[in-house]
C-alpha cells in the first residue's frame, strides 16, 4: 500500500468504554453456519474458550473505566463450561447479553438463568439467532435439523419466564417486509413468546459469509470525508472493545484479522483505530451495531 493510500485511512476515537464484549467460547461452535462472520465451527480453535479468572481480570479493568454493559458471544457461549459462573459474576456488575444459537438451552439451564436474572439488579438478555420461519429456509444456513432444536430452546426460555431477543440476519430476505416480520412474530408466539422481540442484523462479507455471498468490491472502504460531522461516533468501535483468549480486539467482527488486535489489556486499546478494513464500510453504511 502506498503512503498516499495510508494517509487516506480515517481513524476512530474511543470516546468511552460503554460496551465490553467477550468472545467467551472463542470460535468454537456446535453449528457451522454458512454466513458466520467469524467462521465458528466445531473444529475452529482460532480463539479458545475464555476462563472465569481471565474474564474477572477484564471485568475489574472495565469497571474502573465506567463500563455500561457486557456482551457474550462465540461460537456458542454455553459450550464454555464456566459460562454460567461467568454470567453470574458479570451480573453483579452490570447488564449482560448472551448471543446464543439456542441449542444448549435445556429446561434446567433456562431455570438457572431465570434465577440468575431474578437475583441481579440488572437486565439479562438472551439473544437467539434464527434464519427463517421454517426448516426449509433456516436449515440450509444453520444446519440440518437446527430449526426444530432452536425453537425448542426458545420455548424453554419462554417457559422459564425469560423473553429472548430473536435475531435474524438479512440473509433471510423476508424480514425486510412488515408482512415477513409479522410472520416471524406469529411463529414465535406459537412457541410461547407472548411479547416477541426481533432484531435484524446486516451480513458482513467476511468469514464464512465471503464464501457464501461474495467478497467486497474494491470501492467499498471508508474515506475521511465519510465521517458524519467529522466524527465516527455512530460506529460501535467508538464505544466498545472485544476480549478474546488472545487479547483485546477492536470489535466482534474483526477477531480473525490480526490487525483487529489492539493489545493485551483493555488499557492498551484506548487509542484510535484505523478504519482500514472493508467490514468497517458495512458498519458505516448499514448503521450496524452488534448491540441489541
Amino acid at each position: 500500500m502506498s503512503n498516499l493510500q495510508q494517509a487516506e485511512i480515517p481513524a476512530v476515537e474511543l470516546r468511552s468504554l460503554d460496551t465490553l464484549w467477550f468472545q467467551v467460547s472463542g470460535t468454537l461452535c456446535n453449528l457451522a453456519c454458512s454466513h458466520c462472520l467469524v467462521s465458528a465451527s466445531p473444529t475452529n480453535r482460532t480463539h479458545e474458550h475464555l476462563s472465569l479468572s481471565k474474564v474477572e481480570g477484564y471485568l475489574d479493568e472495565a469497571v474502573r473505566l465506567g463500563v455500561r454493559e457486557f456482551y457474550f458471544t462465540g461460537g456458542e457461549p454455553f459450550l464454555n463450561p464456566e459460562m454460567e459462573a461467568i454470567l453470574e459474576r458479570t451480573l453483579e456488575l452490570g447488564p449482560a447479553t448472551v448471543l446464543t444459537n439456542g441449542l444448549l438451552l435445556n429446561t434446567e439451564r433456562c431455570a438457572r438463568l431465570k434465577q440468575m436474572s431474578d437475583r441481579s439488579d440488572y437486565s439479562l438478555d438472551l439473544r437467539v439467532s434464527i434464519d427463517g420461519y421454517d426448516s426449509a429456509s433456516n436449515d440450509p444456513i444453520r444446519g440440518e435439523g437446527s430449526f426444530v432444536r432452536i425453537l425448542k430452546g426458545i420455548g424453554n426460555l419462554a417457559a422459564a419466564g425469560l423473553n429472548p431477543v430473536i435475531t435474524v440476519t438479512e440473509v433471510c430476505s423476508e424480514v425486510a417486509s412488515a408482512k415477513g416480520r409479522e410472520r416471524f412474530f406469529e411463529v414465535l408466539r406459537e412457541h410461547g413468546l407472548e411479547k416477541p422481540r426481533l432484531k435484524i442484523l446486516p451480513v458482513f462479507k467476511i468469514g464464512a459469509e465471503s464464501e457464501r455471498g461474495g467478497d467486497y468490491a474494491d470501492w467499498q472502504r471508508l474515506k475521511p470525508e465519510d465521517a458524519l460531522d467529522g466524527r465516527w461516533d455512530h460506529l460501535q468501535c467508538s464505544s466498545s472493545r472485544m476480549v478474546t483468549a488472545s487479547g483485546v480486539w477492536v470489535c466482534p467482527i474483526l477477531i480473525n484479522v490480526p490487525g483487529g488486535r489492539m493489545g493485551e489489556r483493555i488499557a492498551d486499546t484506548l487509542g484510535d483505530y484505523p478504519l482500514a478494513h472493508q467490514a468497517c464500510w458495512t458498519c458505516h453504511v448499514e448503521g450496524a451495531t452488534c448491540r441489541t
Binding site: T27, A32, S34, S39, S41, T43, N44, R45, T46, G207, A208, S210, E211, S246, G247, V248, N256, P258, G259, G260, R261, M262, G263, E264, R265, D268, T269, G271
Partner: peptide, 30 residues
C-alpha cells in the same frame, strides 16, 4: 465450509494455528 482443525484462516488462506497466533501477537500494544 472449511475444516479448521489445527488451522486458522489468514488472508483467505488456511494456515497453521501457530502462524496465525504469531501474526496476531505482532499487532496491538502492550
Amino acid at each position: 465450509f472449511p475444516d479448521h482443525k489445527g488451522k486458522a484462516t489468514l488472508d483467505g488462506k488456511l494456515v497453521p494455528l501457530e502462524e496465525f497466533r504469531a501474526e496476531c501477537k505482532r499487532h496491538g500494544r502492550s
